[in-house]
Design a protein around this nucleic acid. Sequence first.
DNA 1: TGGTAAACGAGACGGTACGTCACGTCTTCGC
DNA 2: GCGAAGACGTGACGTACCGTCTCGTTTACCA
Lengths: 188, 188, 188, 188
Amino acid sequence: MPRPRSEKARQAVLSAMRRALAEDSYAAVTIEGLAAEAEVSKQTIYRWWPSKAAILGEALLEGELPGADALPMTDDLASDLRAWFTAVSDQQGDSASVELARALIAVTATDPELGAQLNERLAAPVRTWVATRLGLAREAGDVRDDVDADAIADQFIAMASYAALLGKPLSADRIDHTVDAILRGIGA
Amino acid sequence: MPRPRSEKARQAVLSAMRRALAEDSYAAVTIEGLAAEAEVSKQTIYRWWPSKAAILGEALLEGELPGADALPMTDDLASDLRAWFTAVSDQQGDSASVELARALIAVTATDPELGAQLNERLAAPVRTWVATRLGLAREAGDVRDDVDADAIADQFIAMASYAALLGKPLSADRIDHTVDAILRGIGA
Amino acid sequence: MPRPRSEKARQAVLSAMRRALAEDSYAAVTIEGLAAEAEVSKQTIYRWWPSKAAILGEALLEGELPGADALPMTDDLASDLRAWFTAVSDQQGDSASVELARALIAVTATDPELGAQLNERLAAPVRTWVATRLGLAREAGDVRDDVDADAIADQFIAMASYAALLGKPLSADRIDHTVDAILRGIGA
Amino acid sequence: MPRPRSEKARQAVLSAMRRALAEDSYAAVTIEGLAAEAEVSKQTIYRWWPSKAAILGEALLEGELPGADALPMTDDLASDLRAWFTAVSDQQGDSASVELARALIAVTATDPELGAQLNERLAAPVRTWVATRLGLAREAGDVRDDVDADAIADQFIAMASYAALLGKPLSADRIDHTVDAILRGIGA
DNA sequence: TGGTAAACGAGACGGTACGTCACGTCTTCGC
DNA sequence: GCGAAGACGTGACGTACCGTCTCGTTTACCA
């Protein structure tokens, strides 16, 4: 019966979180600051989110997932993999994206429970893409039967995360090398 | 005639940091708490370290580096790689090691500069081990000439870090799969 | 056409105020708490009362005025005065009454304007009683012509208030002493 | 060994409390505001005082006690009493003094325990003055043997408090009347 | 007897102050 | 003269109420 939750306030907070991360490290973001930036009372934040990390989580889930939006599916496996790595690498040229990724990592390092949940959700698209794409390749006889798609996907995500963490996107050369080695590793 | 820096105090602080990390996340560790735990004044800490992260760095460098102490060098490449991944995976069964690794990641996420320095130092042994071991294998004709040892090493470290971050050590099965795929990827 | 003000809600609030004061100091009473206790919405309170103090005022005016209900009027002045002081002193044995009196004092200390209005109303019966009783005594020749009834009444109220404030009701002995001295002071 | 408590900070807080009371009611004074006004951190206040009331108490004890500094002791009892009431009445013309007195009353209404302690200390000089002065008068035969000095003193303080609370200082006329009645009441 | 408008409960909202915690700096004194 | 102890100003924490503002629901009057 009471007044319904203000979607405006919710979006303002999530957006403030994204803006704050673009300028500061996750550790430097304060709830006080978010409230001020979003022109929302602290109480409103505490009413709806249990922690700073939860706000980040929601902001991530609503926003574009780092490295999970470009899921190419042509009929050339090599070029698809290269395309994904390249997209990730390009995205890591944008500091806002890098900071989002780092924030996600920082949250996970501090609160593995929540981090795992977020990872679950953010990695899922990549995992299903890899599974689908490799499935097709296997049917085409391009890939071994015993290939473990999840292992490959985790490997991709690990490499992307590590690159984001250190702020060193994979170079085009290294992407080529890596994709070649992977293909040889899983090829029929 | 000044009194020289107290090595005892220094060790007490580093050890307090290690003990604190065994019980709490890096973010939950406070300088105030370290000082109390180490029975050292805050001033002593501030005199010798510029930040909490620096203490962690020094503690890491003095302690055993996670996943960098077992660098096997037999004449069987496959078993050497498996041995390394297994050692890392075993070490990740120990929560203290995991927390150290997570702390390192958290620091890097917050302060990439310092994180990169630490990473440099901690990853170096792994990188040189991979370079040396693959060099030998290449001489033996077991590995392609164009293999990029650093790329491989980074891939290893990325996978180990990601596993530590999520608290999900690689299973024996996945290690086998992964090593097989890598060998196929880089094999002559 | 509209729904009329709910007398039930009004009484619930006033009663909640009285109950709250029986357990806590006036400063510790909150409108939020009153609303919950009275099972009334905050809005209903704010619709009908401008302040917490106003609720207290109404509660006081509806309830029994502390020290203003026993206004004895026999033909023995000394015993009448003793009776009043004794009644007040007895009432101050009841903690609920004391807290009501303290609340009145607290309101007055914070908002002298409103406090004066309340005092006006609550003290009026005492003042008229003193005026009437002393008038009779003067006619009987028991009391000087120049006696200032209001001054005497104020003195009574001041003593009662001070006793309530400190939680030290006048002892029987002191009442006797005081009444004797007063009678000598105003006696013909 | 540590740094000793800063007397400067202490005085700044007490003085800020006195200034704040001169402008607002005690209830409207906030610790936050005191800290800002005194240019002192909240922590410093909380380190040394358990409550806002305690600050007021210390401020009162260090400052001039309302109505307790003019304790006349000539050889004319009537004029001494008149002098005291007049001094109190005059002091109540100064709004700062009135607000201090009201604050004291407000504290007592909220926390009778602490209020009683403060009252003890602040009333003591008056009580001893009354005892001494009436003692002299009794020796001179001006006053009855059975007079209860404490009862008289409490009566004085009650009247002064009540006047301060309502902001209605006793008029010269009423002082005369009152002192006359008291003298008749206690006179030999 | 059904419409309607105010009063109601519930509670979300932007705020302010609370009392606590840790920060990084400083001052004092003892070893 | 280093180091412990700890006071200091600063500022974020998470909580409690403030007074205002929607929300649907309920209910007394009037047509």
